[in-house]
Each structure stands twice: as structure tokens, then as C-alpha cells.
Amino acid sequence: MTRSDSTSDPTASFYRRIGDNRFEPTEHTQGAWREAEQHMGPASGLLAHALQTQYPRDDLQLCRISYEILGVISREPFEIEVEVVRPGRTIEMVEARMIISSRPAIRATGWRLATSDTAAVAGGGPAPMPGPEAWPNWDVAGFWSGGYIDSVDFRVDPASVPGSSRAWLRSDVGLVEGEPASDLATFTALVDTANGIAARQHPNRWAFPNIDLTIHYYRAPRFDDPARCWVGLDSTAIWGASGIGLTTTTLYDPSGPVGRAEQILTLRKLSDERPLA
């Protein structure tokens, strides 16, 4: 896959901060179906960043993030609001909202839990996945397009078939210009791509956007090598007979499995005149 020249710029970012809680999306957030929309991937990463950096708790791990997509994620300046919904010493819930033109576009709730040493009883994880060096680059241009897609490198298992795919993804684009982001927030920014990786039909013929994204992390993702910020996706998509689908994904970092993600889908033939939202 050939990356656009802009993504080779080490200062490239998905967002710029233009106020205390106000942000401007860059061209790297552009969605796949509509040019004027943001892709959910960078938006979910930014909200994870907000959940971690506002009202921070270094003694708790962000282990579940549930995103509700409440409307069109327009590619225009927006605000993020964060509040602690359920404070606690060992269990806490935090909520972040992306507000676009005075309207909530995405709501993200995150559970934070206290951690402890349970290595002696750990077990039950999924099988390991071959590393990104095992699979070739995927020329995504024949399937997906948009500024966000152009910012991502794809390595896809050649044995993948429509509805079942394994892949590694990485991007050189930072989350917020001039700001460090945690490995978890950087990882989260690529998870929503799972639905596109596991597509059962070509997106020129069918629309299958997800209206939510729920991620469970039983281990915080980590990138020991900055050059190996790879996100592994083992995804399966089920399309039902009544216009509803489900994409389920096991998540990996270079050290092994870290959790799971689920996305519920609305399935629509693009010849239909019904709007997507």
C-alpha cells in the first residue's frame, strides 16, 4: 500500500487542540463513506484520551469503553465534555461526550478498575496471532478510501475471506498535535477499523456502519518499540437476515491478546434512498 506524502510527516495528527476542551479534526480523520464526516476510529481514540487525562487515576486501569454513536460525526470543530459518573476507590465510571454544533455526536463511558498481581491464576486467553511481518501489505485503495484509511498501514492474512479476517494495523499519525497519548488511547484509535476489515460485501454496494463500539481490555495495550505500534485484529462479521449485523474482534498488541471488541451494524443497500442516520 502506498501512503500519502502527508502521513510521512512526523508532526501529522488526527486532531489539533484549539481551546481547553475544543478540538479541530484534520484531513486524517476523514471517513470512508462521506468526505464531510469523521471516521469513528480517531474519534474513539480521542475520547479514550479524554477519559484517561481528565480526572486521571493512575491507580485504576481503563478496562471497558462503550461508545454510542448518537448521530453524524461531522468533520468540524467540536468540544469534549468529561465527568465522573460513579466515583469509587477501586471501581469508577467516567463519561466523555463529543459535542458538535451543540449536539452530542458520541458518548463514551469507561469503567476503571483497580489492578493487582494475579499472574499465578491467569489463563483462558485466545491463541496467539502471527506477527505483522508474517503477512503482506494490503492494497486497501481498491476497497476503502478517505483520509483516515490513507493514514493506516495494513498487513492482512492472505487466508482472510469476506466476513472473517485477521490483520495488523499501524499509523504514523499522532492523536492530538503536540500532545503525548497513552498506548491504550493510540491503540483504541484503530480498533473501529475491524468492521471494515471483516466486511462481507463491497462498501460500494452495501453500507454497514456500526452504531456503537464496545471494547473490553483485560490487559492494557503496550508498545515497547515505537516503531512497532501495531494493532492486531482477528475479526468475524455476522450479517443477519433482517438488516442487522455484528462484528466481533479479538484484539492483540505485539506481545499478545489484550481484549475484545463488538460493533452492532445497520445493513443497507446503497441503492436505497434511506439516509444512513
Rank of each mutant, 00 (worst) to 15 (best):
M1K: 11
S4G: 14
S4W: 12
D5G: 06
S8F: 13
D9A: 03
S13T: 00
S13Y: 05
R16S: 13
R17G: 00
N21H: 14
R22D: 01
T29S: 01
E35Q: 12
E35N: 11
E35H: 13
E37N: 14
M40I: 10
G45R: 01
L47F: 00
H49A: 04
L51I: 00
Q52P: 01
R57P: 05
R57S: 09
Q61P: 04
L62I: 06
C63A: 14
E68F: 07
L70W: 03
I73K: 07
S74T: 12
I80R: 01
V84L: 07
T90E: 11
E92W: 06
E95H: 09
M98K: 08
S101T: 13
R103P: 00
A108R: 00
A114V: 09
T115F: 11
D117I: 05
T118D: 13
G123L: 04
G123I: 01
A127Y: 05
G131A: 12
N137Q: 14
N137C: 13
V140E: 09
A141D: 14
A141T: 15
G142I: 10
G146M: 08
G147S: 09
G163V: 04
S164N: 15
S171M: 06
S171C: 08
V176R: 04
E177W: 10
E177D: 15
G178A: 06
P180E: 14
S182R: 03
A189S: 15
D192K: 10
A194K: 05
A194Q: 10
N195T: 12
G196H: 03
I197V: 15
I197Q: 06
A198L: 02
R200S: 10
Q201F: 13
H202A: 03
P203G: 02
L213T: 03
L213R: 07
L213G: 00
I215R: 03
Y218S: 08
P226L: 04
P226S: 06
C229G: 12
G232S: 08
S235M: 03
A237K: 05
W239T: 00
W239K: 02
T247Y: 05
T247M: 10
L251R: 06
Y252Q: 01
R260M: 14
R260I: 11
E262K: 12
Q263V: 01
I264V: 13
T266M: 15
L267D: 02
K269G: 10
D272E: 15
E273V: 04
R274G: 04
P275E: 03
P275Q: 06
P275N: 07
A277Q: 11
